[in-house]
Simulated assay, not measured.
Amino acid sequence: MKEQAHFWRHPAVPGTDLLRAHYVTHRFTRHVHDGYAIGVIVDGVEEFDYRGTLHRAGAGELVLVNPDAAHTGHAGAPDGWSYRMLYPSIDLLAGIAAELGAPYATPHFAEQVVRDDAVAALLCRAHRAAELGDALAASTLSRTLFARLLTRHATPRPAPALPGEGMRAVREALEVLHGSLVDPPTLDDLAGAVGARPFALLRAFKRATGLPPHAYLTSLRVRQARRLLQSGVCPAQVAAEVGFTDQAHLTRHFRRIVGVPPAAYQRAAGTYKTGDSLLA
């Protein structure tokens, strides 16, 4: 089966993207999402490293990835894997959790691979309805899906494992990186800016985010690139605005994290302009 990927915005649930894909040789580089990644393996096996632990998800199993949790993704079998994914925002799931009377603001999934046949079937139904553009069915099924996941598999978000001073340095380093996408500091300069030693900051940063600062910066650039592409900015200009050397550089990292090239993502967002480069 040939590799293919279809990425689009949910027709009726704001803050939610969807992906239907089959991958064989494609590998997702280590990255983080600013929301959740929730899906079901339709066929084959996916392997992914999640915060340093390797997981295998086979046909019928759910994959649950929390926001800002570093992870990868690649085939765990010769024929690759097929899956259907939803990417809801933190605000969406937190809002549903609040409606359900949950005692926590940010839901957390303690297990990343789950066997729950009823929820897997519901996910497939919601996903297909969204793909067909049936707004009422897609919104009803998707919100029912998220509520079912929260009640069956969510737990309170765990407290940070770092001491206070380490978390302070990481928080300030994150602020610096958010403000310097185009011209980021060196590790030494970043450490100096937050009053930490370089190796101590590197160790604390990786422990808190799952990524070293340079890899986190790449995820951050791709995150901002998605926002710009959704607003209609052409990929070449997006590359310059978020700090990639050119459109090819943007495309390479974008596909490793999102699973589709920028032009395909922009078409799904409905902001693609005829004449833009279709660089894959």
Rank of each mutant, 00 (worst) to 15 (best):
Q4M: 10
H6M: 08
H6G: 03
R9E: 12
L19S: 03
H22Y: 02
R30G: 13
A37Y: 06
A37C: 12
I38L: 15
I38P: 02
V40W: 11
V40L: 06
V42W: 11
F48A: 11
Y50P: 01
Y50A: 14
L54T: 14
L54K: 09
H55L: 13
A57P: 06
E61Y: 04
V63E: 00
V65R: 13
A70H: 01
H71M: 05
G73H: 12
A75S: 14
G76N: 03
A77D: 05
P78A: 04
D79C: 07
Y83D: 14
Y83S: 14
R84Y: 11
I90N: 02
L92D: 02
L92S: 07
L93C: 05
G95V: 03
A97E: 11
L100H: 01
L100P: 02
G101T: 08
G101V: 06
P107V: 04
P107N: 10
A110M: 06
E111D: 14
V114W: 12
D116E: 03
D116T: 02
D117N: 08
A120G: 05
A126M: 05
H127I: 07
R128W: 12
A129S: 13
A130I: 09
E131S: 11
L132H: 11
D134A: 10
L141E: 12
R143E: 14
L145K: 10
F146C: 01
T151N: 06
T151D: 09
T151F: 05
H153C: 00
T155K: 08
R157K: 12
P158D: 11
L162M: 06
G166N: 11
V170K: 06
R171E: 14
R171C: 08
R171T: 15
E175M: 13
G179Y: 04
V182E: 15
V182Y: 07
P185Q: 10
P185N: 10
D189S: 13
D189I: 00
L190T: 03
G192W: 06
A193I: 03
A196E: 13
F205C: 08
R207C: 07
T209M: 09
Y216G: 02
T218N: 04
T218P: 02
R221E: 04
V222N: 03
Q224F: 13
A225P: 01
V233K: 09
P235T: 01
V238D: 03
F244N: 03
D246T: 08
L250A: 07
T251I: 00
T251R: 11
F254G: 03
V258I: 14
P261K: 11
P262T: 00
G270A: 03
T274R: 15
T274D: 15
G275L: 10
L278H: 09
